[in-house]
Every structure is written in C-alpha cells, then in structure tokens.
Write a protein that binds this DNA or RNA. Structure first.
Lengths: 127, 127
DNA sequence: CGCATTTTGACAACCGTTTTCATTTCGACG
DNA sequence: CGTCGAAATGAAAACGGTTGTCAAAATGCG
C-alpha cells in the first residue's frame, strides 16, 4: 500500500527545486489530496531511505527534499538570492574527498558539498 | 560588557571538538558559572558572526560550535563513529567550487564541505 | 545619585519533526 | 463475501532546539 508514498513522490517530481515536507503537504492539500502531514513525513523518509529523493538541510535546519533527476552522485550550486539550483557533477571534489579521507586513515568516505553563490541574473546591476 | 561572551568563548576553547549550545551551557553551569541558556545562544551567535567560531549543523539539525583553531578557511573530516575531527585544508576543493560557480555565472561563491568517514581506530577489526 | 542604555536570564512561544494511538485499509484465508 | 491480523494512516500531543519576550540587573554618563 504505497499509494500515498507514490503521490508524495509525484508531487516532488512535479516540483522544480527542493521542497520542504510542509511545502509538499500544503501543495498536496491544495490539489485536494487527502493526506496527513505525518504521512508526508513518513513517505519522504522512506523515499530518502530508498535513495529516490535527495535530502539536504537548509541553514535554518529544515529538511528539504527533491526527486532525484539523475541517479548519479552530484552536488548543488544554489543561488543565495533566488534559490536557483544547478546540479553539478564534480569528479574533482569526489577525488579530493577520497584523498583527504584516506590520507588520514579514514574509510567509507562520504561527503556533503553545497556551493552557494549569486547567480548571473541576481548579480545583474539592475538587480 | 562582554564578560559572558568571553566566558562562552573560553569554554569553547577549552573543549576539543564541536559542542552544542546546550553542551556549552551545561558545562558552564557545572563549573559554577551563572549564565542563562539564552545568553549562551546569543554569545555563540555573536561569536559566529565575528568569525571567532566555526558553526556547523549536525544531521539532526542541531547547531554545533567550535573555537577556530586557525583563522584560515578549512573543512572538517569527521569520523561517523567516534566523532573524531580533523581539520583539512583543501585548495583543490576551493578552486573547484570557484570553477563550477563561475562556469555557471555565479559570483561571490562560498561553499560548505563536510567529509565523513570511519577513522582508522573505528574501522579496526577489534572495533 | 539619578537616568538612559545595554545585557542578562527565566520563561514562554515557535516551529519543524517525531511519537502516540485509535481508526481505517488491505491482503490472506476460509 | 465475511473475518482476522498486519500495515498504513492521520489528528493531536509530545519533543527538542532555538528564538522571542520582558522585567530585572548591570553599566555608562552627567
């Protein structure tokens, strides 16, 4: 019985950037879906466990989710003004993380990388 | 009147890894300091604003603070088992972040990088 | 000392998230 | 089709870290 979970996943797929659980919940309700906040949280967690969605934490500590566009490991370049997000693949940073890790005797290395900046449109003089 | 703030800073300096605000608060109370949790939070925020402490978010969304050992930009390699932390400098990743950013027209690029792994002692067979 | 300003801290409010628990739904079996 | 048990659901309460409120205390200044 994963109808709700699928609905959550669909909602996420139809969204563009990262969405918070409450966001997803609000949108589903708007579209008339009968679903509870609890279920949205549970669906999102399950989806994240499966690796079907990306999860990251905002600076405010809120978890935001996004349906994976690609199944390959990637990072995000986020505009701090408008939130515009670009997925970036970074073999360089992957290797770097591996290198610094093993250099210090660490194994099973994972890493989180978020790059922030001001995108072209937002840094345009007209602002 | 920054006695409290200094006290918070000192407490952080005497600590080894990253400490949460509540942690710092608890320790200060243990040592007999008369200080409120609110003040610890405010001091920590002020310190972070000044750049006197590192801040990062745990997976649980808790903010943890650490007195900066160095004043140069660096990242952290954290053992997911024991929490052991190594400061790593990464010219490679700095350049990479700059590169992917400007490649997409982003300016004023900043980045957060956390590398996780299992450290040598924790991955030892004896466990 | 008297007064304005800043800092402090106990406590309540907030907010996102998780837990609880009673109800509903689904699947299996007869 | 009816019944039972397991799993899913969701409303509401609990939780936990953080922030806001506001009155009291400390500080600076004349």
């Amino acid at each position: 019985m994963t109808t709700r979970r699928d609905a959550v996943h669909d909602t996420l797929r139809r969204s563009e950037g990262f969405r918070s659980a409450q966001d997803v919940y609000a949108e589903m309700r708007l579209h008339g879906a009968k679903i509870g906040l609890t279920t949205v949280y549970r669906a999102l967690q399950a989806l994240a466990d499966k690796g079907a969605v990306d999860v990251l934490r905002t600076d405010e500590g809120e978890s935001v989710y996004r349906a994976c566009a690609t199944d390959t490991h990637h990072h995000h370049l986020v505009c701090r003004r408008c939130g515009h997000t670009v997925e970036v693949a970074g073999p360089t940073v992957e290797r770097w993380a591996e290198a610094v890790g093993s250099e210090h005797g660490f194994t099973e290395i994972t890493h989180t990388v978020e790059v922030f900046g001001t995108c072209a449109s937002c840094s345009a003089p007209a602002g």
